[in-house]
Write a protein that binds this DNA or RNA. Structure first.
Lengths: 68, 68
DNA sequence: GTGTGACTCTAAGTCCGTC
DNA sequence: CGACGGACTTAGAGTCACA
């Protein structure tokens, strides 16, 4: 499986585990609302610094988000 | 420590463990020689697909390269 | 063999909406 | 609440000559 798909699935799983909407999560991660939507659909190819921004509010590492 | 620095150090460590020059490694990973140089100095902010390209010839995952 | 500045071109990333 | 489109600005992708 592709990295983008792995990130997409991990992100959605962890976000939902927190009970957060995409909007709420986007706010917590300091990224745009639509960007979260795009990433969870595997439609984007984010930079590693963005992955780190996404990882922070979830309490995991950038490495964790790409894992599996 | 910053993700870019973690990638930089992991990449350099793993590449040298293979006994490869940046040039040799760049060829194996299908990226430009100078791009490898930039990443190992933490001077670039690559996308996750690039990280995956770098991981392949080292026999590790994209997640591994960002780890630690 | 590696570092660095500069360059072009494409995509990252933001923001406006609507369905 | 989330998918998706269009438009926009900035930064990454990819390359080169030269140190």
């Amino acid at each position: 499986m592709d990295v983008r798909q792995r990130l997409a699935r991990n992100l959605r799983r962890l976000r939902e585990a927190k009970g957060w909407s995409q909007e709420k999560f986007a706010f917590e991660a300091n990224v745009h609302r639509t960007y979260v939507s795009d990433i969870e659909r595997g439609a984007r190819n984010p930079t590693i610094t963005v992955v780190e921004k996404l990882a922070a509010p979830l309490g995991v590492t950038a490495s964790d988000l790409l894992a599996n």
